[in-house]
């Protein structure tokens, strides 16, 4: 399996705080990679570095883009990460355009394509055929994803008025409209009920197996992350403490320690040994 994204020695410091400390990670193409770790471990910081919201203190983020060859994500501004490298993210606390309708949210996601077709609004203002075609294509793509995610009936509702679980789905649909090479999902199952999480599992597997989208998944809901991930990386205090298949990670003593803490005896023994 070829590597899509390779994170090498990534470090991110905020003043005295080292949020990510010399982290290296490989994300294979066409697979689901899970990232887990306790709260404050640096998972979202990793996403922010990856998608250009933060500029890493040091380290490299190489993306083997299927069409454009190797790209260095750490050098790109956040909008270019999406526009040029097609690495798209969702947010832990949903960030939709709440007053716009669901359909408009999905159309806005295709801004760059449409803006080019509208020739900086000139062709658009006069309603030229080239722009009309591009808009019809954008609507078709939006409609396809709305249908796949069961959102067609809600297409003309304001996105902010819809229930939380549906907003999560809209955010994923919106990210899919960018036609991602790598989809970074930040806790997509947070706030979902068990049935919705099961639907999410099914969707993630569909995207990965049928559409060939590589997925990087931050998740606390173990029923999601253990069931769908091909590969899991565990982060604690900004360092990678374990990596491997879901089974291997589940039984890793380091991981158990990070999540549950260690027994007092062991801690003392460890302290004495140190």
């Amino acid at each position: 399996m070829s590597t899509l994204l390779s994170v090498r020695n990534l470090t991110m410091r905020f003043g005295g705080l080292t949020a990510i400390d010399d982290l290296s990670l490989e994300v294979p193409a066409g697979r689901i990679t899970g990232i887990i770790g306790p709260n404050g471990a640096g998972k979202t910081t990793l996403f922010n570095c990856l998608t250009g919201f933060y500029k890493p203190t040091s380290g490299t983020l190489r993306l083997a883009h299927p069409h454009h060859g190797e790209m260095r994500l750490e050098a790109l501004a956040s909008h270019k990460v999406v526009r040029d490298a097609q690495v798209v993210r969702t947010f832990q606390n949903i960030r939709l355009f709440p007053k716009m309708t669901v359909l408009e949210n999905l159309i806005v996601a295709q801004h760059n394509v449409l803006q080019r077709a509208s020739r900086f609004s000139i062709a658009g203002l006069f309603g030229l055929a080239a722009y009309r075609e591009a808009e019809a294509a954008a609507l078709d793509r939006a409609a396809t994803w709305l249908e796949r995610l069961g959102l067609v009936d809600l297409a003309d509702h304001a996105a902010g008025d819809l229930p939380y679980g549906i907003q999560r789905r809209i955010e994923i649909a919106r990210a899919l409209c960018v036609d991602p090479v790598l989809l970074c999902l930040d806790e997509p199952a947070a706030g979902l009920n068990p049935r919705e999480s099961a639907e999410l599992n099914e969707l993630l597997l569909y995207l990965c197996r049928e559409r060939g989208v590589a997925i990087l998944l931050i998740e606390h809901d173990m029923s999601v992350v253990m069931n769908v991930s091909d590969h899991i990386g565990v982060i604690n205090y900004g360092r990678k403490i374990a990596e491997g298949t879901p089974e291997a990670v589940r039984n890793d003593p380091q991981v158990i320690k990070a999540y549950l803490g260690e027994d007092e005896d062991e801690a003392q023994a460890g302290g004495a040994a140190a």
Binding site: V82, R89, V108, A109, R174
Partner: peptide
Amino acid sequence: IACRAMGM
């Protein structure tokens, strides 16, 4: 922020 995350 969502705008930037959509490549705008």
